[in-house]
Amino acid sequence: MTVEEHGEQEMSFIDHLEELRWHIIRSLASILVFAIAAFIAKEFVFHDLILAPSRADFYTYRKLCELGEYMNSPGMCIQKLNFTLQARDMSGQFTTHMTVSAIIGLILAFPYTFWEIWRFIKPGLYPQEQKNSRGAVFFVSLLFIIGLLFGYYVAAPLSINFLSSYTIDPSITNEFDLSSYIDTLTRMTLACGIMFELPMIAFFLTKAGIISSEFMIAYRRHAIVVILIIAALISPPDVLSMTIFALPLLGLYEVSILISNIVRRRDLKRLNKSTN
């Protein structure tokens, strides 16, 4: 082994900090680039993306109308959302523009940011651990994107429609603050993106020997209670929104049990081959 190879394998604490610093800088730079791009594309970001679920011609509402016609259930068709948006603060729209741009920058840069983090962590793993975690960046990014799409096209619009159509008296009109609407939209969308990572979390925890499919099955009832609590905390305060969050989480928990079982079987087969 040469001195250079030995230096690459045994880095000092300061060298690790320097490497981590550059990974963080590159990650923040990617977020900043996407945030600036989102800030410049103001019309598309707000009219076609952020405010789209507030209009009756949104994709989800149109598909619900088509489903209602097919099922002969006109009540499923959403003709109008009974609310208007307004900005009460003088700097409200500018602040919202900045905040939304930063959130979109974070979302778009997520795959690259995770890749940078993974590049820092990967050299510290054993060769077998590196082999087992192959494709981690792809699957983590894929599940995050699927979760975002579910939140944007299913969870958020259904909750927005329910909350805007709920009235305690016909004389009261719904005039929501822009920040309240965007908070609901982004919170539900990002929460779905994060909760869809549950199968990958189960995969890594099983590989680490922390959990197993038997463990997850034994504590399924406890997990259901925890899922319901999480759904109640991250969703708006209504039963429909909580249900929209809880059902996918329950499904993902069952998928995680299946993944954990597959991982353990493969590890046992590999162990048996090595001993034989």
Rank of each mutant, 00 (worst) to 15 (best):
K131T: 10
E4S: 14
Q9D: 07
H6L: 13
L85T: 06
W115C: 02
F13L: 14
G151A: 06
I117N: 00
A155N: 12
Q93N: 14
L233D: 03
Y153W: 10
Y253S: 03
I104N: 02
I217N: 11
F138S: 10
F245K: 10
M98Q: 07
I201N: 02
I259A: 00
E8L: 10
T84N: 11
L64D: 06
N272P: 05
A208E: 02
A231Y: 00
V137D: 00
L163G: 01
L106H: 08
L247N: 03
Y70P: 01
F120N: 01
L233N: 07
F120M: 04
E116L: 13
F39M: 07
E66F: 06
I168W: 13
A156F: 06
L233G: 07
Y153K: 12
D15L: 08
N132M: 11
N161A: 14
S73Y: 13
H97T: 04
L108R: 01
R270L: 11
A231M: 00
L64S: 08
L240A: 04
I103A: 03
T96E: 15
E8D: 09
I262L: 06
L149C: 15
N261G: 04
N272G: 12
K80M: 06
I224N: 02
D177A: 08
G147M: 03
I230V: 15
A56Q: 08
P157H: 09
E4A: 14
G7F: 11
R21N: 06
R264N: 09
N174W: 00
P199Q: 05
V100Q: 07
H16E: 05
L185I: 00
I160C: 10
L190T: 13
L148V: 14
F139N: 09
P127L: 08
L17Y: 01
F39I: 02
E5L: 11
T113D: 03
E69P: 02
D169L: 02
D169Q: 09
M195G: 11
S180C: 05
Q128A: 06
F162W: 13
I244W: 03
A156I: 03
I244A: 05
G251S: 08
S12F: 07
H23K: 12
A29L: 15
R88S: 15
N82P: 01
I78S: 03
M1T: 07
E43Q: 13
S235R: 00
M242Q: 15
L28T: 04
A202V: 13
T60K: 03
G124L: 10
A29Y: 11
F139W: 12
L268V: 10
D183S: 14
I104M: 13
V239A: 11
A102M: 07
S30Y: 15
F44T: 08
T2D: 14
S241D: 09
E10Y: 10
L268R: 14
F138Q: 07
S91I: 03
I146Y: 04
L143W: 03
I31D: 01
I244Q: 05
L185S: 06
V100H: 08
D89Y: 06
S179F: 08
P237M: 04
H6K: 15
A208R: 03
R21L: 09
Q86S: 14
T113R: 00
L28F: 15
L17W: 02
S256F: 00
E19G: 09
W22M: 08
E19K: 09
L158F: 12
S165L: 12
